[in-house]
């Protein structure tokens, strides 16, 4: 088991390396630079700045330098936020994004699986229709519609909750962004769970359990739901990574100081180190959560072995 984890982590290094390499050269190939302003700077100042950030070196040296720093956990200074290093930015922003994302994830898991299982157990009843209809709606309405609508209704019209802002992480400020993040995930997880539960209910081993007169809570709780949760677990890996690393849309609309906005802002401002930092953080999260999911899956399904 530990050997498996170590092997998987070792296997992740080349993946992250490839991602970093592609991202590094893609950014540098793009026209424009971090200090291109409306009015060109004095060439002498420009030269100084370039020297300070190593931009005067050949690209391959910059690349090697970056890799060297990365290996030591240094993501470099931010180009557009002069006084901050990228690590500083993440140190303040990442906890915010993780807090929002993990709350949304937990809520989505609980409600999604419950609603999905309920709909499957009452297939073709009104509960089922309501869940399926709402879930379809939840999947089709994009976040950037949900977010402003929620903000408009509960923030502006009703005035119950703040329409935006972080407020130092007070619960009142968290509710709307967490809801925005959680709603589509509830919908997706509910649909997945419903489908898997229905399939499990039709399976031969559930028929066996019923034929042997096992009470309903055993048939459902023991023999159906464990099988039904498997597809949800595999869905969870990439989703958890995406939720915890922040959402551009939610953070922009609600004005939340997470890391979700850094990528777009960094790309637009040619903040090379910030973009690279975001890519690295996301890649690490994806790799980690895929590993967690694989381990969970193997714990739930004895047919899967670590090899």
């Amino acid at each position: 088991m530990i050997g498996y984890v170590l092997r998987r982590l070792a296997g992740a290094i080349p993946t992250i390396f490839i991602i970093v390499t592609i991202a590094f050269f893609m950014i540098r190939l793009a026209p424009g630079g971090p200090f291109d302003l409306e009015r060109p700077l004095d060439p002498l100042i420009m030269e100084n700045i370039n020297r300070a950030y190593n931009l005067d070196q050949p690209l391959w040296r910059q690349y090697l330098l970056y890799l060297g720093n990365l290996a030591q956990g240094d993501l470099g200074p931010s180009f557009t936020r002069r006084d901050f290093s990228v690590v500083d930015l993440f140190r303040t922003g990442l906890p915010v994004s993780i807090q929002l994302g993990s709350m949304a994830l937990c809520i989505a898991l609980v409600f999604g699986t419950l609603l999905g299982a309920l709909a499957a157990l009452r297939q073709n009843s009104w509960i089922d229709y309501v869940v399926v209809g709402t879930a379809t709606l939840g999947i089709t309405i994009p976040t950037f519609v949900i977010a402003p609508v929620l903000s408009l209704v509960f923030g502006v019209m009703m005035g119950w909750l703040p329409a935006g802002g972080w407020g130092g992480g007070q619960l009142r400020y968290l509710i709307l962004p967490v809801a925005t993040l959680a709603l589509p995930q509830i919908a997706i997880i509910a649909r997945l769970t419903r489908g898997a539960t229905i399939e499990a209910l039709r399976s031969n081993h559930v028929r066996t359990a019923r034929a042997y007169g096992l009470p309903a809570y055993v048939v459902v709780g023991v023999h159906t739901l464990r099988a039904a949760i498997l597809p949800v677990v595999s869905y969870l890996g990439p989703t958890a990574a995406a939720l915890l690393t922040g959402s551009v849309v939610v953070e922009t609309i609600f004005g939340i100081p997470g890391i979700g906005r850094y990528f777009v802002q960094g790309a637009l401002g040619r903040d090379y180190t910030l973009v690279m930092g975001t890519v690295v953080v996301i890649a690490v999260f994806v790799v980690l959560f895929n590993l967690v999911v694989d381990i969970l899956y193997a714990l739930l399904d004895p047919r899967v072995r670590y090899d």
């Binding site: 399976s203 081993h205 028929r207 007169g213 023999h223 099988a227």
Partner: peptide, 21 residues
């Protein structure tokens, strides 16, 4: 009654048992 007084075995031995237990 079922599973106690009347029991049953099925055609599909490969899938009639729960693979997870």
């Amino acid at each position: 009654v079922r599973g106690k007084k009347i029991t049953m075995i099925f055609q599909e031995p490969m899938t009639s048992l729960d693979p997870l237990y």
